[in-house]
Amino acid sequence: MTTDVNLLLAVSGMLFALGLVGVIVRRNLLVMLMFLELMLNGVLLSLAVFTHLLGAEAGAVLMFLVFTVAAAEIAIAVPIILLLVRSGRTLDPTAYSGLKG
């Protein structure tokens, strides 16, 4: 059991790190969005592990809630990117740095 937990946590950390590196390195908005989801999944995996470990079943419910919200986020983020691309003709985020507050 202990090794399982460690392994699962390591996988969670790696997923998160991979996602972060991807967000930093890639220059494509859609790909960055995917890596963002990867980061989120890493975090959720750790949440699932700890929920299991502590026997707090409410955590599982929270997890599904986060999944739902994340899906909704994507549903908003993708149309925004589509609109950006329609006006800017590129997926490179540096082209849109003029949007800063």
């Binding site: 972060l20 967000v23 930093i24 960055m32 540096t94 740095s97 003029g98 949007l99 800063k100 507050g101």
Partner: peptide
């Protein structure tokens, strides 16, 4: 610091 570059923001988060 607030350059508008998403990557720069990601680095700072890191």
């Amino acid at each position: 610091i607030q350059s508008g570059s998403l990557h720069w923001y990601a680095w700072m988060t890191l």
